[in-house]
Structure formats: C-alpha cells, structure tokens
Design a binder for these strands. Sequence first.
RNA 1: GGGUCCGUACCCGAGUGGACAAAGGGGGCUGGCUGUAAACCAGCUGCGUAAGCUACGGAGGUUCGAAUCCUCCCGGGCCCA
Length: 404
Amino acid sequence: MTSVEDQLKILTAGTVDVISEVDLKKKLSAGKPLRVKLGIDPTASDIHLGFTVVLRKLRQFQDLGHTAVLIIGDFTAQVGDPTGRSVTRPPLTQEQVDAHAATYVEQVQSILDFTPGRIEIVRNSEWLSKIDMGGVLRLMSQTTLARILERDDFTKRYQEGSPISLSELVYPLMQGWDSVQVRADVELGGTDQLFNNLMGRQLQGAEGQAPQVVITTPLLEGLDGVKKMSKSLGNYIGIAEAPGEQFGKLMSIPDALMPRYFALTTGWLPERVAAVVASIESGELAPVAAKRLLARTIVDLYHGEGAGKSAEDEFDRIFKDGSAPTDVEEFVITSGEFPITLARLLATAGLATSNKEGRRKIEQGGVRIEGEKVTDPDVEVTAEEINGKLLQLGKRAWARIIVS
RNA sequence: GGGUCCGUACCCGAGUGGACAAAGGGGGCUGGCUGUAAACCAGCUGCGUAAGCUACGGAGGUUCGAAUCCUCCCGGGCCCA
C-alpha cells in the first residue's frame, strides 16, 4: 500500500480546502480503507466536465484502495439544493429522478472504478424518507437560524425579498445526515458544497461518530468563462455529448481559461500541465494550437483514442472549409406536402420553429440549398426539385431532404 | 388573521385607459470579421403569405377602446398581530 505521506500528497493535490489535514492523516494512518462520500443530485441528466473534477479526485481515492460511496440524492432532489441559487428549484417527479439517476450511474463509469468492493451506490431516500418528525427536530436542533442564514445565497435572496422555503433551510441537514448514515470518513465536493459538507461533520460528531474530513475541489468555469459550469446555466460540456459538440464547445472557451481546463479536466499530471501552460505563455505554442490540443485530449478521454482527431477534422471541414459534415441527418417529408414554400420547408425540416422564423432566416441570407444561397422565402419548390438535396441553415445546421 | 405592495414575452425589467406585439438589458439566432462556435460590429428575436389572430398571473366586468380601471380567485414580498 502507498505510504501515508504519499497518499496525502496525491489526495490533497489540486484541492481547495482540506478540513482538516491532520484528521485526514490520522484516518489514513489507521491503515483501513476509507469510506469516501460524494453526493450527486439527479436534477439533470448529464454529467459535465465541471463535475469530473471532483470525480477524478474520488477516483484517486479508489486507486489508493479506498471505497467510493456514491450517494444518489433522489430524496434531496425533491427539495433542491439552495446552493448558489436565486430561486427555489422546481420539484422533480419520481420518474425524472429515476431516469437521471440511471444516466448518472452509467456516465460515471467512464471515470470511477466499478470493481465490486471499490464502490457503493446508495439512494438517500432509503433513510431520508423514513426519518420521523422527532428525528428531524433532533437534527434541526444541531444548528441555528443565524448559522444557516450566514450563507450568501440565503442572505441575498432574503434581502431581495425572494421566497425561501423552510425545506431549503433544512437541506444542509439532510445532506449531513447522509454522512451519518453511510459513516463517511471523507466527503468530497466542489467549493460551493463546503457549508453543506461541514454540516456532515457536526452531525456525525453529535451522533458519536468520528467527523468526516471535508475536501473541496475547484469549480470549473463554464463556456462563458465567468460563471461556474452548471447544467442549469447551460454553459456546460457533457461528457456523453457527441465528439463534434465537445470539440466545438471547447474551441469556444475564452483563451484565458485554457490553463484551468488543462489542469482540471485532462487528468494529466501537474508537471505535464505546467509544461503546456509554459509553452503557451512563452508563445511557443499558439493559442489556437493549444486549444485544439485541449479539445482533442478531452474528446479522446470520453470517446476513445483517435476520436479527438476525427472531431478536429470534422470541425475543420465545417468551420474552416465551410462544407457540410460527413453525415447529415436526413429529414423525410411526405410528397403530399409539396409544392412547398422555402420558408415552410425550413420549418417542416425542423431548422426553424415556425414559418415566420424560416422566412426571417432566408431574408437574412442564412439559408442555402446545396451550397447555393436562397433569397426568396415565398418561392415554391416541388418534391422532384428538392428530393435528396442538402438544406443548410447558418454554419451549424443541416438537413438532407428526403421525399417519401 | 389584519394592512400594504407586487405578478409583463426565454430571463430581468419599463409601461398605469388609445400612438403597445409592448422601451431597455441579458440570452438566443443570422450576417460580417477572425486562429476559434472567442472578442468585436450590424440585424433579427409571438403566430399567420396576408387581412388578421393570440398575448402582460387566472376568471369575469366597466369602456367605442384595457397590460393599464373595478370585482373575485391564485401566487409572492414586506409590516402588524
């Protein structure tokens, strides 16, 4: 087994908070596999690059012989984590939660070790749906309103006069109770989870358990380069997204963000990251080349070796040469629809949400048929004229029209 | 429970009887430029070929005419209890 000192070095690298390192050392020194908790709220169906930061940290624990305890927050998802939120989350149905949870577990396999014994996956409804009012009150007496309200997100909402549901105030307690239930030795999370995770420490202490070590990892900025990557902000790159999508999205991140992306998402050793960053700064590696390298690396990571190169070729074909992608989706239109105006054709093929919008796109010069720009939205085409032709909207949307 | 203020398009937000399909910003889209799906600049952004239709929390009402006035209902903030 790796020495305690080496483990400490690996496990604390790239983290923001470790509370506390002394505790972690003590726990590691006991020589037993630690139970390392990570909670996932199944509020959306995709795992994104930002979340892989903490997943990779969890994987490091697994590789050192510790046990990953993945908690699917199916119960807490019904309340909604108020962290960083300015509004109450809408409650999810059981079906949505189940579907999201299934997708999560599937996607997480590309990062975590699923060898039996290395991972446990549990749902927090197992215990949270059973706790009675007495139990809830006991938990609530462990904290005070002042402590809960210290949090920025609540303070802000309170000052703004936005509604805050009491159930949201209890959220950190539920998450803390999870730690008690799974007897967590360590809990991982993004820096925004610090408050919630510290609650776990306190509740464990009150229940006579050794308090968990809380480790936080940095939050990755999303495509906009400012706000954290999140599903609800729509600025994310999903690990299950198509190679072309991932490549393109990565190419669009602000240049200044590249070092962070290399450091947090590639899984590279710090020395390798430092070397790349240095060559960018010295001008040896052009920004665009660096970004391509990043994009290839990430696509390879989630779609297999070589997928990055293919995605890059495709990207060049589309955006550099301006030609159509190799596989354009076919769109079948029944012959009864013809003759049809170009505006309506666009809407029928799903490239516009309405005829009106199709009309606008054509008038703006954004529509091509077989590479030829069309200008009159009212022109009618017959089935024979359009069958098999390539319809293009803007730089990023195509449909091959098939008449049946 | 009482009082008071509020609810506007994807989001924020102006509008308080006609000139309102509704200012402004964000987002999104299209075009230009570019190493880039970045940045920047310009245009577009309810539906309908059109006449017109539908839309300012919901339902009624007043009026020639309502997002704007009245009644009730639903949702929210604040103050008092």
